[in-house]
């Protein structure tokens, strides 16, 4: 039982990170019908920005916990802002000029953009694994015991996991509000349904698309910083696997659906962790992708997606 609870906690944490990335995929797909394959690498860039910021602040083992938490919030905000600029630039340079081109063109530039980002970071930061200073990691490693096991195994929620889940829930609530009840969100949904008509009712479609990329990149930065704090080590290649997993999560939940992306992320995280915990970690990715294949066969629109209805 303790083991199960522990896996559940770990799965939810990992799933939160996947969910945050998946939102970026799903929002961009919703508004321009394109899979932004560079999004995983935007997540990686966000993670590196977070790491550099932590190193610049230079926390030590003697720093009080309050300061560390304040530093974490500061890093999150700055990383979100800087990564958002990356997201905006990518859209402006690589996707906007191709809008109105054939469907595959932006897909191909997205793959190109992904390679560019990976290599850029590899050259700038080196190919070796980078570590978060152990001081910060250790200070956040403590936690509560939620369930004490008879055989000495306790289920523990660490502060890091609490931070990750807490930040994710807050951001989800905030963005759900943004999409459902603000003018910006209404414009985004209008562009999603009919871009031309949205323009004719006075919505600046290009700007709305840019904002979508900015929001997606900011959320990816949050996921990046969370990943950094959780695992303590990153390299230039983390965007690939995390990106594919998050994309899978978006498809699983129903691409284009915001709650679907979050649900998909949580499910992928849970499947992965439970598979690794009970079956063996060798085939955890196979398990996640097999579930995806099953969903695509029996429910192609995803768990929360709307089925496409072709009107005649």
């Amino acid at each position: 039982m303790e083991y199960f609870v522990q896996q559940l906690i770990n799965g939810l944490t990992l799933g939160s990170i996947y969910g945050l990335i998946a939102i970026g995929y799903t929002m961009v797909y919703g508004i321009i019908g394109m899979i932004n394959f560079a999004h995983g690498d935007v997540f990686m860039v966000g993670s590196f920005i977070g790491l550099l910021l932590f190193l610049m602040i230079g926390l030590t083992a003697a720093t009080p916990l309050v300061v560390i938490i304040l530093a974490l919030i500061g890093v999150l905000i700055v990383a979100m802002a800087l990564t958002a600029v990356w997201g905006w630039t990518i859209e402006r340079l690589a996707y906007r000029p191709l809008r109105g081109s054939f469907r595959l063109a932006p897909l191909i530039t997205a793959i190109g953009m992904s390679i560019v980002l990976t290599n850029l970071v590899q050259i700038a930061q080196g190919a070796r694994v980078k570590n978060l200073p152990p001081d910060i990691k250790d200070r956040l490693a403590g936690g509560f015991t939620v369930l004490r096991g008879a055989d000495g195994f306790d289920a523990v929620v660490s502060y890091r996991q609490l931070v990750i889940v807490g930040v994710t829930v807050t951001l989800m609530a905030f963005f759900t509000w943004l999409i459902t009840s603000t003018s910006l969100g209404r414009a985004q949904r209008a562009c999603e349904q009919d871009r031309t008509m949205a323009a004719l009712t006075g919505v600046d479609v290009d700007r709305t698309i840019s904002i979508t990329f900015v929001i997606g990149a900011a959320l990816a930065a949050v996921a990046g910083v969370m990943f950094l704090v959780y695992y303590g080590a990153i390299d230039f290649y983390i965007g690939f696997v995390a990106g594919i997993k998050a994309f899978t999560a978006a498809v699983l939940g129903g691409i284009g659906s915001l709650p679907g992306a979050m649900l998909g992320g949580l499910l992928i995280g849970l499947i992965e962790v439970f598979w690794a915990g009970y079956v063996g970690s060798e085939y955890k990715d196979v398990a996640a992708f097999s579930i995806l294949a099953l969903v695509l066969i029996f429910r192609p629109e995803g768990l929360l997606g709307r089925p496409e209805i072709e009107k005649v």
Partner: peptide, 28 residues
């Protein structure tokens, strides 16, 4: 007809007032 079919009637009419609202909210 090109309504935003998935949005409510009210939302359809609010999207049409997007610019005014965006200015009023200092772009959200």
């Amino acid at each position: 007809i090109r309504l935003f079919a998935g949005m409510s009637l009210l939302e359809n009419l609010l999207v049409a007032q997007h610019n005014k609202l965006m200015r009023a909210s200092l772009f959200t």
